[in-house]
């Protein structure tokens, strides 16, 4: 039932090359997932062929730019916009750039920090960070 899972760690500049090679072999993009670690964002690209997963892993320092693979896999656009809107990772070369309006969140980049985005609001009071956002 459980497939063996390997996460193939690659460098950022080889991402496009690897993605192109996978596409030529007939893989489909399953998902792109990001995890915020204290000083870096860890990205996982999962590809599938004949129900078997191949995972690529990228470690991106905070603030570094991510090359888009939307030119290779068209459906990556949504995942990359999601990574940008939730984690604040700037993505280069997006086929369709929503410019941060893909998700309508009260807080900008809500997942982009290891701390909780909002402190627990006092009873009856609006969430403090939502108010700050409006003031800007």
């Amino acid at each position: 039932m459980n497939q063996p899972q390997a996460f193939d760690v690659i460098a950022v500049d080889t991402l496009l090359e690897r993605a192109r090679a996978l596409r030529e072999q007939g893989f489909r993009l399953v998902q792109i997932s990001a995890t915020q670690l204290p000083d870096q964002v860890e990205l996982t690209y999962s590809f599938d062929r004949d129900s078997r997963l191949t995972n690529l892993r990228l470690n991106l320092p905070n603030g570094a730019r991510l090359p888009s693979i939307s030119g290779v896999f068209g459906c990556a656009v949504l995942y990359e916009n999601e990574v940008h809107d939730l984690f604040g990772v700037p993505v280069d070369g997006l086929a369709i750039d929503f410019k941060g309006n893909f998700y309508k969140t009260a807080v900008k980049f809500p997942f982009g920090s290891t701390k909780a985005p909002c402190a627990a609001p006092a009873a009856g009071a609006p969430a403090p960070c939502a108010v700050e956002e409006v003031k800007k």
Partner: peptide, 12 residues
Amino acid sequence: PSIGFIHRGLEK
């Protein structure tokens, strides 16, 4: 498309 009207942040 534009989505995100009911983003609840369940992952967080």
